[in-house]
């Protein structure tokens, strides 16, 4: 089955992103296809490469990035939600006159249309959030 994933909560504060990671791993193992993972609301905070959790804790951002790399998963961060919360790629930083960017490799910033498209193209759109 082709699955779209929506993550609406940030890392550590909330379990949504952890659960989504485990769900995606399990779905891949069963042979399902992940059409796209879309990060919205505080979920965009999963994309910052500047997060520095304690060494004995998981690094959720790195886990997403490595899973995406291994399986060619499209990780998309909503541009409007990201701008509000200070998640920027190089282009966005330049456009908005900011002195740096902070997005992890493997994530890309795009519009909400990518979420709607995931709803249209995937067989199921699964939400992880509050």
């Amino acid at each position: 089955m082709k699955l779209g994933i929506l993550i609406n909560e940030g890392p550590y504060q909330h379990q949504a992103s952890d659960t989504a990671l485990q769900y995606v791993k399990a779905a891949l193992k069963k042979g399902h296809e992940i059409y796209r993972v879309f990060f919205y609301n505080d979920g965009v905070n999963n994309a910052t490469r500047l997060a520095t959790p304690p060494q004995d804790d998981r690094n959720i951002t790195k886990e997403w990035a490595s899973l995406a790399k291994d399986h060619g998963i499209d990780l998309v961060v909503c541009v409007a939600a990201a701008q509000r919360r200070g998640i920027l790629d190089k282009g966005e930083a330049e456009r908005n006159g900011k002195d740096s960017d902070n997005i992890e490799d493997g994530f890309r910033i795009s519009g909400l249309g990518q979420l709607v498209e995931a709803g249209i193209q995937a067989d199921r759109l699964i939400t992880f959030g509050d």
């Binding site: 919205y40 609301n41 409007a80 909400l112 249309g113 979420l115 709607v116």
Partner: peptide
């Protein structure tokens, strides 16, 4: 919380996709 506002933002985008 921001959920209501950001929900409305997706709703308007979805309409633009003629769904």
């Amino acid at each position: 919380t921001i959920y209501a506002l950001e929900s409305l933002e997706v709703v308007l985008i979805t309409a633009a996709f003629d769904q």
